[in-house]
Amino acid sequence: MNELVTGDAVVLGLRPARLPSRACAVLIDLLLVWSLYVALSLLLLSAVSSLDLAAVAAVQVALFLLVPVGLPIAVETLSRGRSVGKLVFGLRVVREDGGPVRFRHALTRGAVGVVEILLTSGVVACVASLVSERGRRLGDVFAGTLVVRERVPSVRAEQAPPSPVWLEGRFAGLDLSAVPEGLWLAVRQYLMRAGQLDQAVSRGMAERLTADLAACTGAPPPADVPPPHYLAGVLAERQARDARRAFGPAGARAARGTAPLYVGAPATEAAPSAAPSPGERWTPPGGDATRGGHGAGARSAAARRPPVVDGSTSPGPSSGFVPPA
């Protein structure tokens, strides 16, 4: 069962309907239409029974054109391709590009359907649907439409996938000021739908977007980074910069998805795996906070102490008063 793909290589969340579901939907529609046609025929024929045979025949022809032929066309046009039977089975008539049908599409399908469904009891429609790759009958072929399934599991792609961990900070030196917003939007949309595209189409789109992004940044992409990973890494770097401008360094680290560094810790040191709970003292790497420490944490704390003016070695802050000699 092939999915619908537009000319822009975008996979729609719709799949062509097959003969069993379409036949059941048509049977429901025909049952409702012919029931209404018979009821109206009995009412009108009893009302015009005093007329001659030519008038009665004209009323019957007009009623046939209005109910079995005109009513499905009107319903399909007003409901954008959904009749009662199609609504029950979760089907819809759409154009070949996935757009909604209009009156001319419904008129063509209805006119051809009189021959292939009503006059031949659906035999021609069944044969054409079995031969067609997408289950299209002759009315769909002439109208440029097809019947698709709406009740299929869809892939949620609300946000772009995160950048690989091994690319964190790899593109920190890129100049992203010349990249237009349209290209950022194209990169995001590609990353959101990369898993739904054909592999060859996805690879070609990734290479084109990578070339455009590299031309805007003025730096060629790394040879050891695949194009999809390059796009994800550069997009993550741009999000981190936006978060840094809006929320500071903590927002940039949150945008990258990494653990925040503690205030006062050297930039080259990694943060502990978990933040200390309220009231609990955190021990810096290489030192012991309870003993004063001899590691990097103690050395950094000693470096931050204010100088002692009187030459003593007291660790407390100086008051600035020098006693007389």
Rank of each mutant, 00 (worst) to 15 (best):
R22Y: 04
W34H: 12
D8C: 12
S154V: 09
D198I: 09
V131E: 02
L71R: 04
P285K: 09
R305H: 12
K86N: 05
A128Q: 03
R188L: 04
P284M: 11
R208D: 14
L51C: 15
L130H: 06
A106K: 03
F171C: 05
F64S: 11
V131S: 11
S35R: 03
V263Y: 09
D212A: 15
A172S: 15
L31H: 00
P227N: 05
G293H: 06
A178S: 15
P222M: 03
S121E: 07
D97L: 10
R244G: 13
R15L: 06
S50I: 01
P180M: 05
A325T: 02
G7A: 14
W282Q: 11
S312F: 02
E181N: 07
R208H: 11
L40D: 04
V26A: 14
D140R: 07
L14K: 09
P307E: 05
G311K: 12
S319K: 03
A215V: 01
E116I: 08
L91D: 03
A39R: 05
A143I: 05
G251H: 02
G295Q: 04
P153A: 15
A111P: 11
P228T: 00
Q189D: 15
R203E: 09
L51N: 15
G218E: 00
S202H: 05
P315E: 07
L176K: 02
G292P: 07
R244H: 10
R104V: 09
H294I: 00
H105L: 06
Y230P: 12
P220E: 10
V115F: 15
D140T: 08
A106H: 04
V179S: 09
L65W: 10
F142N: 08
G13K: 13
R136A: 10
R15N: 04
L185V: 05
L197N: 04
D175I: 00
Q196T: 13
V69M: 13
V101Q: 02
L32C: 12
E237A: 08
G264R: 07
H294W: 00
V101R: 02
A23C: 10
A215D: 08
V141S: 07
T77W: 13
S312E: 01
A236R: 01
T145H: 10
V5W: 02
L213H: 03
E3M: 11
G279Y: 07
A111I: 13
Y262C: 06
L183W: 01
L78Q: 05
P162R: 06
G70V: 02
P260Q: 04
Q196D: 14
I73P: 08
V263C: 11
M192T: 12
P180E: 03
E158L: 14
V263L: 14
R109P: 05
V88F: 14
G297S: 12
D198G: 15
V59Y: 08
V179A: 11
G98E: 04
P161C: 03
S318L: 00
A200L: 13
L213C: 07
L42K: 05
V187W: 00
D175A: 14
G70Q: 02
P20N: 12
E158Y: 06
F247N: 03
G85A: 01
V69K: 11
P222Q: 03
H294F: 00
V141M: 12
D198R: 14
G316M: 08
